[in-house]
Nucleic acid binder design. Structure first.
Lengths: 221, 221
DNA sequence: GTGGTTGAGTTCATTGTGGTCACAGGCGGA
DNA sequence: TCCGCCTGTGACCACAATGAACTCAACCAC
């Protein structure tokens, strides 16, 4: 369970956000706060993993609060939820390493997608990075995937491939996956490779046979 | 011109990084520092836009320095350049919003690509965001991922060999490395030799055994 | 010294998979 | 109906790894 603290000056809005977060699997709201001072106190007593932070607070501007939160609890992550559209606000938030920046108003699905993406990323950091590629994976994959597939890929096929990969406990090669679903090897490979770049699948090479080594894909997490 | 401050405890390394940065269009090094205190002072007097930060400093751990730098100059960006491979270091750096995290040792092109990507991103923030899509663009830019290997070598195998080499405290021969990973001796040697030419591995010859002397490889730095 | 032995470096054809390209079929808008 | 865009495909070439054969540098027995 990822523990969440909701911070918003408007009591009703905080309530709504709490409802949203509680509806997402793997997340639970451990408290709410309506001001900067309340947020710092709650952070200290509740030890949340993630703070949903509105930038417009009565006593302090949200971006200036982040440093104080980090001073209390360095490991806390921040997800900004605000109506602030100034470039400086966005830039400042990114500079302080916020997990995401969600513009009000938004629907449940907008928040859900971003929370799920955060959970995935959180779980997928290896104990020790060995190569620059590992680091890049941690740095980069913040794009909200689910609905945004690259050109040439379809949602339906993506789900088929994902399902097939999830079903097999061991590895799958592109050719095997293709035959399993009933699509061509080329298509299977394209989707598997996409899943790999997204960090949802892991690639290992199988050597030993003569000829070029085989790329085998494993579902992750 | 983007003003850069180079921070590294090793004087010679700082010098090299300075040379690298100055060779990239649009960037100029305005100073170097060899400790956390020097970095803070330089930040105050030189007002750089970007800090190239090594994490291993004599007086303070780099990640703990970032907050101090931000306190002095909130608008400064950080690019971490370090040999630190612990997940906590990477995660902590990302959490504090570093622009990038580059593993030592690296070549000029590795740094250049990341600096140029940073410059692009820096220039492309609109004055005011209107939609969530604008925000997402700022949050998740296109990943650089330019890791050029010579023909005949694959990224995955290269990572395997590197990992194996880093894990063994002493030397490795080509044959030992091959058996450890599960590839052929010829392939192992090809990758090890490549790492040697890159300066990431060191070669020593072991005599005394009958037969031709053995090339033994050690991970460097 | 000299020639034989040994084991590692080096080369190369082989091989099965990887990756690319241009096209086919389908869907939707004009 | 025509046109354009999108997704999946067959076919083709490129490619990474292999293992056998060869070369080479050190050691050893004489």
């Amino acid at each position: 369970m990822i523990r969440v603290l909701v911070v918003d000056d408007d009591f009703m809005v905080a309530r709504i956000h709490r409802g949203f977060v509680d509806r997402v699997d793997g997340f639970e709201v451990v408290g709410t706060a309506n001001s900067g001072d309340q947020a710092v106190a709650a952070l200290r007593s509740l030890a949340p993993d993630l703070v949903l932070l509105d930038l417009y607070l009565p006593d302090v501007f949200g971006l200036d609060l982040i440093a104080r939160l980090r001073a209390v609890r360095p490991s806390v992550d921040i997800l900004v939820i605000t109506a602030a559209r100034e470039a400086e606000a966005v830039r400042g938030a990114v500079r302080q390493g916020v997990v995401n920046y969600l513009l009000k108003p938004f629907g449940f699905d907008d928040l859900r997608v971003r929370l799920e993406e955060y959970a995935r990323r959180r779980a997928s950091v290896p104990d020790e990075v060995t190569s620059q590629a590992d680091v890049d994976r941690v740095l980069a994959p913040a794009r909200p995937t689910v609905n945004r597939l690259p050109k040439g890929l379809s949602q339906e096929t993506a789900e088929l491939v994902t399902a097939a990969l999830r079903k097999t406990p061991e590895n799958l090669s592109a050719a095997e996956c293709a035959e399993l679903i009933g699509i061509s090897r080329v298509s299977a490979r394209r989707y598997l490779e996409f899943l790999a770049t997204q960090g949802q699948a892991e690639v290992t090479l199988r050597y030993g046979t003569t000829g070029r080594p085989e790329r085998r894909y494993t579902w992750k997490t």
